[in-house]
Design a protein around this nucleic acid. Structure first.
Lengths: 242, 242
DNA sequence: TAACATATTAACCAAACATTAACAACAAAA
DNA sequence: TTTTGTTGTTAATGTTTGGTTAATATGTTA
């Protein structure tokens, strides 16, 4: 089973909910460690290596955010999912700033959680390339250097990219041929997800489309309500993911 | 209490342990039938319908595995939990092969058992859609990618699906060749089950039928008053997968 | 054959997206 | 210190998409 040996650190103070969720994840072939508060969570985090952390936000002794911050200090990569109470919408933002990969309102659909876990783990595993170290991308006949922020088409003069253009195109490239969720780009690049940042992002998509127009094998497609997809046609067979 | 009317078949040869466990489960609002060996267990199994079976592995006359196999022949769905002696780790595998949902080493923590029971029963009740996290489906000559929301017929241009079209087709695919209850789709996808959402769903069924028309091996049938059924004729010999 | 369930097409409205342009903030250059 | 340029946000406007409801069949069951 594909989830096997993926280690999850689950930090949840409600013992009932915690162990049920744990069982559910175990049934789905994850290797789960349960901690019942932030203190214990951090202890367990230090003692092992996890592929994913699921943190309840409201906990005694040490809340989810604080724990997340500590975890981040130790490890900048490990994906974090927050579980928050339905009401507190603001918390979401606060969570993202700490570098959460996702959040879920309680009560939530267990399937949704599974989906998010899968998506995150899959992404992380293919994101090695996205890791700050990588800054060169081949996009069809383009070459993107995201460190020097320019985009070159074949042998023509490089196009200078603004910081936002650059980050957005880079993120699209990381998700090449796959869905780049709108929400993700907004929270990661714009650091806020609201009506206006969303309009702003549309503007940048339009700018990028203009640049990419010269190569008709490259295209940015919209998936209504979900996000965008950078498609590159005639791409070699693809490494047959998984 | 939520456990009420959940029927458990408990097969355990040790009369002391058996009746204590039985009482414990009854205290937790389960409806428990106790059998003291595999023979008796199978007799009782045939006479009633259970939501869960808890089988001791080592028993005279008919051991737990043999019983489990017989039960599986009669019923492929009912969850089975094995109780095994602490030592025999190998048994675990053997148990899973019979289709056990879980196992517990004796002696075990009664609360752990309760938790497992809960988790299993909950899972079973929502497992039909077990693969809801999957997002690629083969439907006859079609290929559905429910993450990117498109449907491809052979090598033709992909058809873009709207969120509702996509979710509905996905649910049909999960229930392939089986009944997809109308009510389920309405509550899951439309989040409401009333006259209007029901009409709306009909509209979507019509849309999907139009898409699927190009392959005459694929068809959405209605089961009057019950729901719909996505039938795929001449299903290929099965990709041997799994 | 009434009552009800399903089928199909079309009309409509709201939300999401696309694109260009105006503008504000700020920095670099003259 | 003006001037010029770059960057990003907001506005204005138009287009597309998605979902519900309506209108009008046809089927199914008791």
């Amino acid at each position: 089973m594909e989830n096997e040996n993926k280690k999850i650190l689950l930090v949840e103070d409600d013992p009932n909910f915690g162990s049920i969720l744990k069982d559910y994840l175990i049934l789905n072939d994850f290797d789960v460690t349960l901690a019942k508060n932030g203190m214990e969570g951090f202890e367990k985090f230090k003692k092992d290596t996890f592929d994913l952390c699921i943190l309840d936000v409201m906990m005694p002794y040490k809340d989810g955010y604080t724990l997340a911050k500590e975890i981040r200090e130790k490890n900048k990569e490990v994906p974090i999912i927050f579980l928050t109470a339905k009401s507190m919408k603001d918390d979401v933002l606060k969570g993202y700033k700490v570098g959460a990969d996702d959040y879920l309102n309680k009560p939530f659909d267990s399937e949704v959680l599974l989906m998010k876990i899968k998506a995150i783990i899959q992404r992380k595993s293919s994101e090695v390339k996205a890791d700050a170290t990588k800054f060169e991308f081949i996009i069809g006949n383009f070459h993107l250097n995201s460190k020097l922020r320019f985009l070159t088409y074949k042998d023509t003069e490089p196009i200078k990219l603004s910081p936002k253009e650059n980050e957005l195109l880079k993120m699209l490239a990381v998700y090449e041929n796959d869905l780049m969720p709108r929400e993700l780009a907004l929270t990661k690049i714009w650091r806020d997800d609201n009506y206006f940042t969303s309009r702003s992002m549309d503007v940048y998509i339009a700018k990028l489309r203009k640049y990419l127009k010269m190569d008709d094998e490259v295209e940015i497609l919209n998936i209504h309500g979900e996000g965008f997809r950078l498609v590159v046609k005639n791409k070699p067979p693809a490494p047959a993911a998984e």
